[in-house]
Nucleic acid binder design. Sequence first.
DNA 1: CTAAACGTTCAGTAAACGTTGAACAAACCG
DNA 2: CGGTTTGTTCAACGTTTACTGAACGTTTAG
Lengths: 176, 176
Amino acid sequence: MLALELSNVKNSPELNPLLEQMHFVEEVGLMFEMAGLPRMSGRIFGWLLISNPPQQSHGELAEVLQASKGSISTMTRLLIQIGLIERISLPGERRDYFQIKSQAWSQMTKQRIAQITAFRQLAEKGLELLKENPPRLKHRLEEMRDIHAFLERELPLLDERWELEQKQRALGESRR
Amino acid sequence: MLALELSNVKNSPELNPLLEQMHFVEEVGLMFEMAGLPRMSGRIFGWLLISNPPQQSHGELAEVLQASKGSISTMTRLLIQIGLIERISLPGERRDYFQIKSQAWSQMTKQRIAQITAFRQLAEKGLELLKENPPRLKHRLEEMRDIHAFLERELPLLDERWELEQKQRALGESRR
DNA sequence: CTAAACGTTCAGTAAACGTTGAACAAACCG
DNA sequence: CGGTTTGTTCAACGTTTACTGAACGTTTAG
């Protein structure tokens, strides 16, 4: 919940961009929460998606999001660890800044692939347990293993294709 | 934690399959927890992956997993809702049984795609907020939108290819 | 009908989690 | 050298969550 006093403010988009921005931030927070991550980490990420400039300091984050320094510190560490943001420190500046990492989303794909690998391995472990049993009982686990092996093969290819397309697009734009 | 008395039992795989099965079940539980789902739902799913027969009643689940009836009831409902298991009721039988749903994993892919759509929409919402700003500020959100749009296009195709491959394999096997 | 088995719902609990705020540490400035 | 700014760590708090167990409703069987 916002601690700012907003009740007297007219709710029009043009007159109150801050309100809309905070709504966006809150939505990102909810999506992160649905994905099993702390809501505050999502708020930070959401703000870094729309902030001007894209680099925001620890203190700025704390102020805009109405969160404690501790929370910011913990959650930025988490976001860095999972590869979604990065810390940048300018020479001669005491403060650190955070910004969205450029390949944040490929990073997420990579993590997803790691999870898929774990699921495939789990299926194989299960099949090991059932190795003396009739095929009828093994189908469940074979299906689980095969689909995950399939995705394990295909998702990296998809990611490559994406990166290739991006490079080509960048090339095309720079040529103009 | 297991409530069964296991401390006197020799720990060899051959002598104690139950212990290994329970270990497997517990691992699935942990993976589900990592994915943001209740651990007990993962235990149920894990047991249904290796149980003999694949159909297990409410009561059997409660006994094997050392869980309360309430927990089983709630968690099976959840698993059904997200499409991972199904309930089967035999005519003339009072009891209901649960089993892994055959296209459980395609189902998960579909859910993932829905989430990707949500992320793309969120990016577009963010771009709307920044529409008056210079391109420099919009890059973050454009990247987010584009990668998700890409996956939104490609994942269903991947899923189709998988299902096609499966059908062909089944055909090949039945022909032998 | 009564009795038993089956299943769901729900209040209560215990543990886990997110968040805060204060104490602490480190870097910089006067 | 303090003093100030910046950031991390950690204990404590409050909330949320998973799970239990009991109460309740339903169905089947005798």
